[in-house]
Design a protein around this nucleic acid. Structure first.
Ligand code: ZN
Ligand code: ZN
Ligand code: ZN
Ligand code: ZN
Lengths: 163, 163
DNA sequence: CCTGCAAATGTTATAATGTTTCAAATTTTG
DNA sequence: CAAAATTTGAAACATTATAACATTTGCAGG
């Protein structure tokens, strides 16, 4: 899959989204999973924002599409997308964001700007290593890691109040 | 503050709770904070379980005390306790747990057993270091870290189905 | 093509979690 | 004691998520 732009720097976001959708179709095909119209549309909506989107935000967008959707529709699509590694849930925000490393096996680390709301997903192998070490030092078998850092992105450190 | 027992190993839990309360009183006194009866009771309820307790679980306990409480009562107490470093919120569970390092400056890392529900709070300086490194490598100013590991505790790896 | 099954979606209702607002009581301070 | 600030009570409301069951759609075998 192709490289991604930094969310809090300007870039051609339409290309960003369409690349994500193309990647998603490839990934689903490889996994014999059905990226149905609803699922694809939800993925698109989430990708159109570099900021995490709540399930009910997605729902509102679907409704304004003219699609008569109810909460389970959205949650089911989100479950599917998560299961196939296409989106992540940000637990500290109750919101969802497109995975920038779809297809690669990884543990995401999320840098969440409290000022502008943008989120950058990193893969930090050294962090994962230390986490595993700390867990196994306690005899704990780690399965899933939630790692979310709130703070200020580079842009918001220098020019507060944008966006 | 005194050492703590491992939650998923048997220990004198009453002593564990009363020590936590004693520590809390000391900490609040030092910070000129008022550990009112409601706040202390909420802390006690949370400590009585080594497993994270939801806000509405706390509310139910208060009600069965005969205390006529509403959600804001609980959330306010929990806010206070978090602000003074006496409890942590576990974002991936929407639940709260007593801090085992109250009074020490620390970033908690939580090992959450998906089988028995017990949670162990660790301080892992190497992890914190790597997290800081990864964040500052992106020019990000990290403020608060959410680090929650779900998996199997030592006990549940060997004897499934207890508790 | 039809039939029957499994997966996906629609629909309604409800549960679980968290907040806003304003009033009353309590504690602190001068 | 009186004024100010903090804490608590109470009611309504907002947000996030799931349960349960009906219906439709996609697909494989006959
Ligand atoms: Zn990812
Ligand atoms: Zn920012
Ligand atoms: Zn702690
Ligand atoms: Zn366990």
């Amino acid at each position: 899959m192709s490289a991604r732009a930094i969310p809090y720097r300007p870039h051609n976001h339409d290309a960003c989204v369409s690349q994500a959708l193309t990647d998603a179709r490839t990934i689903c095909q490889r996994q014999n999973a059905r990226l149905t119209p609803i699922r694809e549309r939800v993925l698109e909506l989430i990708w159109q924002s570099h900021k995490p989107l709540g399930a009910y935000d997605v729902l509102a967008e679907l409704s304004s599409d003219g699609h008569n959707a109810a909460p389970p529709t959205v949650y089911r699509a989100l479950d599917f997308l998560q299961q196939h590694g296409l989106v992540h849930r940000i637990a500290s925000l109750n919101a969802f964001i497109g995975c920038t490393h779809a297809g690669e096996s990884h543990t995401g680390m999320f840098l969440i700007c409290r000022a502008c709301g943008n989120v950058l997903e990193l893969t930090a192998p050294e962090v994962s290593t230390e986490v595993r070490k700390a867990a196994s030092g306690e005899g704990f078998r780690a399965e899933t890691t939630t790692l979310e850092i709130a703070g200020l992105c580079p842009r918001c450190q220098s020019e507060p109040g944008h966006d």
